[in-house]
Nucleic acid binder design. Structure first.
Lengths: 246, 246
DNA sequence: ACTAAAACAATTGTTGACAATTAACTAAAA
DNA sequence: TTTTAGTTAATTGTCAACAATTGTTTTAGT
């Protein structure tokens, strides 16, 4: 019975692809949603995605559930999946929750700041500054996003990181929307005092600054969305909310 | 033609039956873990659970993933699942994160308090008081848990509720542990000022009280766990990964 | 006795087929 | 014309078989 092993798929494993297929599929889907390939409200079916990805429905199903957990996709039983579209209410919830988590992270980081953490913080902040001086808006949005991801990481609080990662996708969508209301310079002025407070270990001030550094823009976005919802009562068929929108 | 429909499930669909099988299985598993049927660290295999529940492995697999998301189970690729055990570090992360979310909830509820919300809040708090006077410790723990669930619900902040629900299972485990250090009366004194602040709309005070009402007990539990870990050095356990950053 | 390769066992990863559910459609009855 | 019962199409829900991965045990060679 010593039959030779048969490998039907030797090719696709070209890189350090140690992740399971459903996790990889989830990454691809998340990226597609974030870059606007799938518009908010668009319907997604397991079968067509499975076919276009060359994977089975069961695998795609698992990846879709991952994104449902992240709030990027909504699922109705026996009806299907669709890309989540941000209502004004959703936007308000997201930025208030985000403020809460980021304020906690800022305090934590300020309390446990070290020389090494200061360096990594500076690196992330420098990228924001460089992106702003480069004048490319999408780069500034991305650098801003990465900065906050770095802060969460530097807290070394795994549970906090997990919850922040859970809303990260939505935050990213939100950020490209809120970018409408910001001048590029704003990306620097809203962060510099916060960074300084964390660098110098002023925990209370860092917490307060982080809790409020999105509030003004968030409320403006909520107001804008609310008006848009009032004008078109049924549907929000605005431009795709991806990084490409500017 | 008019053939009678064959209803294999003639009984009026109870609401529970309308949920998908994997969600029901997840509920059963969660309850089993919370009630100690499965001990922390115990290994869970898809096959044996599938057999004991009378469901297929795929269905159980989906339910296990749900619990992994909730942080009640840890998964190692190709190795298996096991019930998460709380290290002192985990306990610290959990109670600090919990404080953060509950402080936000308390502020929100205080800011939006209404007559109806006051009633529901009173009901939940009364159950705590009654449980304490009854002298049954497990009832007090349960009522405490339900009180905080009610507070989260009354905020009408869906995203906050979602994130709180995510840690609810762990909070429950944590609470039965921390109960070691509490007299029954503590369940009243740690809550009464908080409830009052929310009832009267004093948002700032409610936030501050909520943020600290677990701190003392939490730190005592962390200390206790740390000592226990020091005594038995055999915790060469793998790094638990419930909610991990990407 | 020690090391390295090879077989083995246990478990999850992946897939395609089948069942159940819902909504849209059609046609008959009021 | 409106309502209602049946039919159908589309989609997810569930399942059982097979493949891949890892850790363990055995075996061969030195």
């Amino acid at each position: 019975m010593a039959r030779p092993k048969l490998n039907r798929k030797p090719a696709p494993q070209m890189e350090v692809t140690r992740r399971s297929l459903d996790a990889q599929a989830a990454d691809k889907l998340r990226d597609a949603i974030l870059t606007g390939v799938f518009a908010p409200g668009e319907k997604l079916t397991e079968e067509v995605i499975a076919e276009s990805f060359g994977l089975s429905r069961g695998t795609i199903r698992a990846s879709l559930r991952l994104l449902v957990h992240e709030g990027l996709i909504v699922q109705e039983p026996y009806r299907g999946y669709s890309v989540r579209s941000l209502t004004s209410r959703d936007a308000w919830e997201l930025f208030t929750l985000r403020n809460t988590l980021e304020a906690f992270a800022a305090r934590l980081l300020a309390e446990t700041i070290t020389e090494e953490k200061r360096d990594r913080l500076d690196q992330a902040y420098d990228k924001v500054v460089k992106a702003v001086t480069s004048g490319v808006r999408t780069r500034a949005v991305e650098a801003d996003f990465q900065l906050h991801l770095t802060i969460a990481e530097l807290t070394e609080h795994a549970a906090l990181q997990g919850h922040y990662a859970l809303i990260a996708g939505q935050v990213r969508l939100y950020q490209s929307l809120v970018s409408k209301f910001l001048s590029l310079q704003d990306y620097i002025v809203t962060h510099e005092t916060l960074i300084l407070a964390m660098r110098e270990g002023r925990a209370g001030e860092a917490e307060r600054l982080a809790a409020q550094h999105n509030t003004a823009d968030g409320e403006r976005l909520v107001e804008w969305l609310r008006e848009a919802e009032g004008r078109s009562e049924d549907h929000i068929r605005d431009r795709p909310v991806g990084l490409s929108a500017s």
